[in-house]
Design a protein around this nucleic acid. Structure first.
Lengths: 226, 226
DNA sequence: GGTGAAATTTAATTGTCGATCAATTTAATT
DNA sequence: AATTAAATTGATCGACAATTAAATTTCACC
């Protein structure tokens, strides 16, 4: 039985190149992954570079070698991880010759798929966007919001004018509501899952719940004819 | 015109007692207020004691004199500011021989009133409940949730069984949804208010919006008979 | 095979923050 | 009036985090 050995405490100097190609994981990307995960679970300011380094089994100095500074590391994360996701989300609203309901259904569906596929997203979002001084807020307000929030507001207002939807809704609040409705349950998962057993509540169930609430609220469905 | 003078840089030693009774504000409470405000807007870890001290026009040492440690200060805040509010909220669901809609309307209404009256609440709530290791999480899961979440779940399930409400909703997700729907828009105020002008969106407007969405979703109201 | 660039670590530097403690001033008590 | 208790500052210590510099090892190319 081989003794489980500490993974050779990495000598100084440039390490030998991996010959196994699959193993040649780009260190920089690995650092990004590690940082993203820790930032999401603990917050950016609360996570020292040393911790990222330890988890990635390198030294803090290497983080500086690759990113220059902590601030820069965050910026890289936004640029390379967050932006692609949100851009993808932005696409959803592009072709909207559809019915409003259908459009919103797609938007919320896509958003929730994205949240389910990237568990770090909701926490990071709450912490770094909603929080005063959050590192990501400027980006949101400056780039993402104009694309999404304004469009949603206009679509809702137009549909209201046509009498297609509930006129008591405030168009300008609609986007926030949408986001709250989808992001919050994901971010709060650890809480409600520890309140009652809910292993059977999959992302799909959550999606159904949210969409149904969005479309009909508490209203029971009309009795089917027959 | 008198030169605006720096408020006398407080000599060391015990200060003379204020004879004006209204002026004799309890320093400890003042420190709590200041800390609460800064914590809510910047985050706990992001706020050094020195900043609280500067804003309250005392030295960091005094904070230690009154609270012993930063951790203790946070605990005091939770104990003396947050808990009373949440307890008060817990009362709302106590007497519920009412109709489900009416009950929920009251619950959401009360919650949103509370949020509007205590602007620091949403931010601190998000941080202390949703965040891994937040101070309020244990309390919420252990005490508040059993009162609220379980009750809401049961009420919703019962109403569904009676065919009174939308059967597609997941009862166990209902409470989270409710909280997300009300807390999120408040917490995100700084964001959406900077996206488009919305001075006219008062807490009452927000309340109407949320309640209407909750009750009817996107459904337009039935054409009034006549 | 030698040489410079690349990738790492170790070690040193600097700044900030929380905490402690002695000194000082006033209040309260006897 | 004397003495003790309470409230407050100033100075500073130790921990730790971010950054920088230097040293070391390997790689790639001529």
């Amino acid at each position: 039985m081989s003794i489980p050995r500490k993974p050779a405490p990495r000598r100084r100097g440039r390490p030998p190149a991996k010959t196994i190609p699959g193993e040649a994981a780009d260190i920089r990307l690995h650092l990004l992954d590690t940082a993203l995960h820790l930032f999401a679970t603990q917050g950016i300011t609360a996570t020292p570079l040393s911790q990222i380094a330890r988890k990635a089994e390198v030294t803090p100095a290497l983080l500086h070698y690759y990113f220059g500074s902590k601030e820069n590391l965050v910026e890289s994360l936004v640029e390379e991880r967050l932006l692609p996701l949100t851009r993808q989300l932005g696409q959803t609203l592009k072709p909207s010759p559809r019915d409003l309901r259908e459009t919103l259904q797609h938007l919320v569906g896509d958003l929730m798929d994205l949240l389910a596929a990237n568990p770090w997203f909701p926490q990071l979002w709450l912490r770094e966007v909603l929080q005063e001084g959050g590192q990501l807020r400027d980006y949101l307000v400056g780039r993402l919001a104009p694309v999404l929030a304004h469009k949603v507001r206009d679509l809702v207002a137009a549909a209201q004018a046509r009498g297609e939807i509930n006129p008591q809704l405030e168009p300008r609040l609609f986007m926030v509501t949408l986001v709250g409705l989808s992001v919050f349950p994901f971010a709060a998962q650890p809480v409600w899952r520890s309140i009652f057993p809910a292993e059977d509540i999959t992302p799909d169930v959550m999606k159904q719940h949210v969409l149904s609430l969005l479309l009909h609220g508490l209203e029971p469905p009309p009795v089917p004819p027959g």
